[in-house]
């Protein structure tokens, strides 16, 4: 048995680099769904800290009931989306030192969604829209067999699966950002990724572009790419999901010959249904 004195204690202690490095002037939105205002705070900031660290310090020291939604603090769960100096950002991935030195930092809730309290918004719109996408139905796996898919055929979709549902693309999309009235008819970029999957999954038995157009309001999108620019996962939402669906829509829905063909085959289907 080793002597207590020689015994390693608990975890290695980090070299203490966490001395306060300075302070930040924060301008934080406080309020409920009906009223609110920006409130100024002066907060300590340590080396390497992100905006969320500073907000937590505010909670612990100056504003115990400051509402903020967060989870993983590692850019993987997409909970802490907010507008920092006017731009949608993940608070957990925005380092204080990357913001303009000596200037006030403005922190506000996402604009496209109703405020619940302070920095927390009601994002249920996004969940409802996701729910409206038809469930993916794959070709059935035969007893004793496994699905075979080539990596190159799924890489495109794996890009969409990186989505952390931070809903910042929804927040910046100008179709809804300042147009609440468009929400019922428009699903938004995050949801278009899901519609696109119905087409792009190598084993899918469905098509996504028609429902995306008819029910998701794909036609409202005029490909300004705001969604792609804000995506923290660098998903090329416009180029890889939205535009290909628009192209297929153009091919299938607006091309007269295909359109006639669709009508014929729909009639034929109806006839066969009758026969049965």
């Amino acid at each position: 048995m080793t002597e207590l004195a020689d015994r390693p204690t608990a975890l290695p202690a980090a070299t203490d680099k966490s001395d306060v490095q300075g302070t930040a002037e924060m301008r934080v939105w406080r309020g409920d769904g009906t009223t609110g205002q920006f409130v100024d705070y002066t907060v300590d900031v340590n080396e390497g800290e992100v905006v969320l660290d500073v907000i937590h310090r505010l909670q612990a020291e100056q504003a115990g009931d400051l509402a903020v939604r967060w989870n993983c603090k590692a850019g993987k769960c997409g909970s802490c989306s907010m507008e920092i100096n006017g731009k949608p950002r993940l608070a957990c991935m925005t380092r204080m030192e990357t913001l303009p030195k000596g200037e006030q930092v403005t922190v506000a809730p996402m604009r496209a969604f109703p405020v619940i309290r302070d920095l927390v918004t009601d994002v249920s719109y996004n969940y409802e829209k996701m729910k409206s996408v038809p469930e993916l139905k794959l070709a059935e796996r035969k007893e004793g067999e496994v699905h075979r898919m080539a990596q190159e055929d799924i890489s495109r979709l794996q890009e969409f699966h990186k989505c952390i549902e931070c809903f910042m693309c929804q927040n910046v999309c100008h179709v809804i950002r300042d147009h609440d009235e468009n929400k019922p008819a428009f699903a938004g970029p995050r949801v278009f990724l899901k519609y696109a999957e119905l087409d792009m999954h190598p084993l899918s038995t469905q098509h996504g572009e028609k429902v995306a157009y008819d029910e998701g309001g794909l036609g409202y999108c005029n490909i300004t790419k705001c969604c792609s620019e804000v995506c923290p996962e660098d998903i090329h939402i416009t180029d890889n999901a939205i535009i290909p669906m628009k192209e297929r829509i153009a091919d299938r829905k607006f091309e007269p010959i295909v359109w006639l063909g669709d009508i014929r085959s729909a009639r034929k289907d109806a006839k066969q249904q009758k026969k049965r």
């Binding site: 409920d32 909670q59 115990g64 009931d65 509402a67 619940i116 309290r117």
Partner: peptide, 10 residues
């Protein structure tokens, strides 16, 4: 704890 009950981390 202080404040209101909405999303109060405290």
């Amino acid at each position: 704890i202080e404040g209101h009950v909405q999303y109060n981390a405290g």
